[in-house]
Design a protein around this nucleic acid. Structure first.
Lengths: 128, 128
DNA sequence: CTGATACCTGAGCATGTGTTCATATATTCA
DNA sequence: TGAATATATGAACACATGCTCAGGTATCAG
């Protein structure tokens, strides 16, 4: 059966020319992060890769808020907020608590907040 | 001409019910990160929000590499790598150096690498 | 020059994403 | 119960994204 992909780079043989080090690429192959880790890492960053979600996380960093307050602060429709909150909920980044008619959301992942803060430092530092 | 958006939530008045603190939302409005910062932050994270780019950054973390080596290590076509490298170049995350026929790429942003590493710690820690 | 190698780039395409709109569910109050 | 409020959800749409494919540029060898 034919291969599904034409990527023949499987074993080695990158270019025909000698590189920095003949077997440097081979040595690097061993030091790659485990399979799936790159995907998980990308997925984590992807959550923060949207301005609306960034803002939601930002306002929630100040503490618990109900949906309409989030919508008001982020200046986006409540429906859009609700959709994003579901995404964040499914990824276990926020937690919901019902209190009467409102539902209050809280950050539920200390990792995301520190990533957020470090990213913020870098962004504000860069545009000096 | 009419407003493009029907978002009337401009001033305040989130819900009709009293919140945790009557003027808490108003107080939070002042502490929001500057306009545009959320966008810049999201854009930064968005770059890391793709497995291919994560892998490219990963292999480049080990030092300078030519395009075909990157393609070989990341196991993706050279064309796809080239496209991603252009993106990373435009965002000033990598730098290119021509040496004969090959072009060697290096990481050109200390921020992205530390974000990458912190994200990696969190991901590997989470799936213990 | 010609050919070969290494990389770049535009077009096209399939897939993913974020929003709106309409509607559904849940809770409270009268 | 019925109306009003707060949130959730599905469908649809516009748009972005990442890849492949087919060429294009740049460099070097002969």
């Amino acid at each position: 059966m034919a291969e599904p992909s034409k990527l023949t780079l499987a074993s080695e043989a990158p270019c025909d020319v000698e590189h920095l080090d003949p077997n440097a690429t081979e040595a690097r192959r061993a030091r790659l992060i485990p399979a799936g880790a790159a995907e998980a890492l990308a997925e984590t960053f992807r959550v923060l890769g949207d301005p609306t979600r960034v803002r939601i996380i930002e306002v929630l960093a100040g503490g618990e808020l109900c949906v309409c307050d989030i919508a008001s602060l982020v200046e986006i429709s409540e429906s859009a907020v609700s959709h994003q909150l579901r995404l964040l909920r499914n990824m276990r980044l926020v937690r919901a608590r019902r209190a009467g008619r409102q539902v209050y959301y809280t950050l539920d992942d200390r990792h995301i907040l520190s990533l957020f803060q470090q990213g913020l430092r870098h962004v504000t530092e860069e545009r000096r």
